[in-house]
C-alpha cells in the first residue's frame, strides 16, 4: 500500500511535469520516422523488423526510464523520500511506475510497428505477447535498479545506456530469438527454453535488485 501510494505520487507528478512521457513520445516518433525514411520503398525481411522493434524499445527505455530516480536526485527530493519510506517500499513504488511506463511505451511501439511495417507479421501471437510481457518486466526491473545506481553519478545521461547495455543484453538477445520464433509461427511449447531464460532473468534481476537497493540508496 505504501509502495502504491508512492507510485500514485510519481504518476501524478509525471502527469504534471511530463518529464518522461514527452521524452519517450518524441524518441519513439523520431526513431520510427528515421527507420521509415531510411527503408524508403525497400522491403525488409521479417526478422530484421523484429530486430528493429527491440532496438527501438531498448533505446526508448534508455531515454525515459531513468526518470524514476534521476528526477528525485535532480530536484533534491531523495532525502525527503528517505525520510518517509523504507528502501524496499521506495524501490517497489518506483518499479510499479516503470512497469506501467514500459508497458505503455512498448505497446505504442508494437502498435506502430504493426501498422507501419508490412513485413512485421507475427504468426504465433501467443508466443509474441508472452515474450513481450516477460521482456517488459525484465526491462522495467533492470532499468529501475540501473536508474537508482546512476542517479548518484555526475554523468547520468551517458552512463545509463552504457551501464544498461551489458545488463540488458541477455534479455534483448533472448527476446530477439523469441520474436524470430513468433514470426516463424512456432508455439509456446517449442520455445520453452527461451521462455525459461526470460523468467529466470526476471526473477534474478528482481531478487538482486531488492537485495542491492538498500546499499545503493543509502549514502
Amino acid at each position: 500500500m505504501k509502495a502504491f501510494s508512492l507510485f500514485i505520487k510519481d504518476w501524478k507528478s509525471e502527469l504534471r511535469t511530463r518529464y518522461a512521457i514527452n521524452a519517450l513520445a518524441m524518441f519513439i516518433l523520431v526513431t520510427i520516422s528515421v527507420i521509415l525514411f531510411s527503408i524508403g520503398q525497400e522491403k525488409i525481411s521479417e526478422y530484421l523488423t523484429g530486430g528493429l522493434l527491440w532496438v527501438v524499445i531498448f533505446f526508448s527505455a534508455m531515454s525515459g526510464l531513468s526518470r524514476a530516480f534521476v528526477s528525485e536526485e535532480e530536484r533534491g527530493t531523495t532525502l525527503t523520500l528517505q525520510l518517509i519510506a523504507s528502501p524496499s517500499n521506495i524501490f517497489s513504488g518506483k518499479l510499479i511506475f516503470n512497469v506501467l511506463l514500459v508497458f505503455l511505451m512498448n505497446l505504442v511501439i508494437a502498435f506502430l510497428f504493426f501498422i507501419l511495417f508490412e513485413s512485421f507479421v507475427i504468426k504465433s501471437t501467443g508466443l509474441f505477447w508472452l515474450s513481450f510481457l516477460l521482456g517488459n518486466l525484465g526491462i522495467a526491473v533492470s532499468s529501475t535498479i540501473i536508474a537508482a545506481i546512476i542517479s548518484k553519478a555526475n554523468s547520468k545521461g551517458t552512463l545509463y545506456p552504457v551501464l544498461s547495455f551489458p545488463i540488458l543484453l541477455p534479455l534483448i538477445l533472448t527476446l530477439l530469438e523469441l520474436t524470430k520464433f513468433a514470426i516463424d509461427g512456432e508455439t509456446i511449447g517449442d520455445s520453452y527454453v527461451e521462455l525459461f531464460v526470460l523468467i529466470s532473468y526476471d526473477v534474478i534481476m528482481l531478487t538482486a535488485s531488492y537485495l542491492l537497493f538498500d546499499f545503493i540508496w543509502k549514502e
Partner: peptide, 13 residues
Amino acid sequence: GFVSPYLFLYDEF
C-alpha cells in the same frame, strides 16, 4: 522528523 535547508518537497504539488 527532520527540517533542514537541504530538504526539498515537491514543487509540482
